[in-house]
Nucleic acid binder design. Structure first.
Lengths: 338, 338
DNA sequence: TCCCTTTGTGTTATCGTTATCGTGGTCCAA
DNA sequence: TTGGACCACGATAACGATAACACAAAGGGA
């Protein structure tokens, strides 16, 4: 019925409360020196007008945005969700928010996303993974804000690192199997060259097998990363058909490992009696499915909290050199392996 | 070594390219009228300086942010992730980005989040759920931007709606069981009063049972929503102990249903021979676990794409009245029920 | 009592981009 | 030849908040 009235500004609130806009501004910060009396009058005026603080203006003038940009491969992944949760809790105390973007496991998409995020002038940026396009790298280097790479251990980091070597992690799993006398081990993963962590895990598998003097030729490519439960199941089907003497299979993630497990169930193949199955990530499903899944726990939340602490240290000037913090995954022995 | 040089601005780029800042601004839009020659000179200058567009200034001046705020309960849920994906693809064509926040299934957290998001002046806001705190409602009503509630069918919507009745959906499942002659049906959900969709599903269960003249007293509360696989398993354990004559159990989500299923496996209880199990959501696991899970598919991606289209229609002025679009869930009969 | 600190508030001038208006030049139909 | 439409670009003034500085009044220690 009325014309779409302009959203009220601080000036409107100031007029109604009988103070200057500057005082309104101060009243909206928690620490500012405004008398209780004035502040409550201002807040009441703001409430009456339905005033909502405009952070676009605030950000421009103060040259601070109070948020940290975070890129994750997918918004539907319990591991990355836990890392974000750890980050978010660690940053909350300092009033830092998280601006989240997802890359769909694609470094070209990541490049676009990084540019979008940097345009919004975050205080720091947290990346999942340590491999980027050359342009993305340049953008990050020029940004003059703290850059944290996580879930990886890049050879030449852009800035700080909180993560682990995906290759070394899989080596742990291979060593475990070999130590129990298993030698014919397969690896189920996605097609190479997209999900860089998956590719690193495959490389780690091959390197570890080779070092043990074993054949690293049981490699099943199961489609574009991230591979699904269904793709894990299909891959297991092919493995059982083509290489039935395989004693153990390491899957690139718990989700595909669970799919593989169900394929065994459908075919009446006993796990771990006939074949052992292992995953990666220690998702909830690994602990509850029957049989439960042997896997690697990468401590995703820990990665988030350590990254958050690092960001605060850097912003406070307590940390000036690039840091590399290693959070090593831990082997979780369960019932899907002997 | 050098002092942390100020980030270059359009003025710096303009100087280097020998044009006015206004022309630089135009060169960075796609449709603007700038000669090819000038534009390439500007882009080269920008590249040389490592210039990154500052959207905080742009947003303030143009009074447009080109993003849509979206709240979801959790960043680790395949259903909501699919809705976000649908939204994101539908909005991408118009150059609209998504600003994502999560509420942890808590309407008080939602209130805080809504305020944070509105401060950034989004072009529209998409909410998961139709129940909000009074203050959140007021904020949304004052915001004078399109508001879309999803995954619900509120009695008095704030604005537009793209969703379904959670109560009616569960009724579909009850009807299904009753039509196959099953009468002693249980419901496993979270503690009431937090996850509003879960609460609605429980209410729908009770209403449907009552209408069929059946007892709706087999209600298992399994902890704070969202309930996990483990909590679903524990709840199933209690159900099997306390009410062993139960013929079917409806779980508030596929994840708890899967947990319940594994508990049956651990106890040697045959599904669906001794008891039928149903979930909600049609997550991938429902289709691949053994036995596969009977569930309701809420078409999460469809919710996202419909919401995106609605937003564009409203922003274009093609849709002026509040719309209610119903995307009805579909029963997926699988092997966990007879 | 005097001076110095603290507290509460106002004034002014921006932050970096772009809406708006203006201008000189080109092209073409009447 | 001329008038108008169009193109490529520049000058100016905001958008709404706050950093920086200023200042009056109150409080406190010597």
């Amino acid at each position: 019925m009325s014309t779409p009235r302009k959203t009220p500004t601080m000036a409107d609130v100031a007029r109604l409360a009988g103070v200057s806009p500057m005082t309104v501004s101060r009243a909206f910060k928690q620490d500012a020196s405004v008398s209780e009396h004035t502040r409550s009058a201002i807040l009441e005026a703001a409430d009456r007008l339905g005033y909502v603080f405009d952070s676009t203006a605030s950000n421009l003038r103060s040259q601070r945005t109070d948020f940290v940009a975070v890129t994750i491969p997918s918004i539907n992944n319990a591991n990355f969700a836990d890392t974000v949760r750890g980050l978010s809790e660690g940053l909350k105390a300092r009033g830092l928010q998280i601006l989240l973007g997802y890359t769909d496991y694609d470094i070209n998409e990541e490049e676009r996303l990084i540019e979008q995020l940097l345009r919004r002038r975050p205080e720091a940026i947290v990346l999942t993974g340590g491999r980027h396009t050359p342009r993305a790298r340049r953008l990050l280097e020029n940004a003059s804000i703290p850059v944290i790479e996580t879930w990886d251990l890049p050879e030449t980091p852009v800035g700080h690192v909180v993560g682990f070597s995906n290759a070394a992690a899989v080596r742990t799993m291979v060593d475990h199997f070999v130590s129990t006398g298993i030698e014919r081990i397969a690896f189920i993963g996605g097609d190479a060259d997209r999900d860089t962590r998956g590719t690193d895990r495959r490389a780690g598998f091959i390197a570890a097998m080779t070092e043990h003097g074993l054949q690293a030729d049981r490699l099943i490519a199961a489609g574009a990363p991230p591979i699904s439960m269904r793709e894990g199941a299909d891959a297991m089907g092919r493995l059982l058909n083509d290489l039935p003497d395989t004693q153990a299979v390491i899957c690139v993630s718990d989700l595909s490992a669970f799919g593989a497990l169900t394929e065994c169930q459908r075919r009446g193949v006993d796990v771990p009696g006939q074949i052992s199955v292992a995953g990666f990530g220690d998702y909830e499903i690994a602990n509850i499915c029957v049989p439960s899944l042997t896997t690697l726990n990468p401590f995703p939340r820990e990665i988030g909290t350590r990254a958050a602490k690092l960001i605060l240290d850097v912003l406070d000037g307590h940390q000036t050199e690039p840091a590399t913090i290693i959070v090593a995954p831990e082997l979780m022995r369960r019932h899907s392996s002997r």
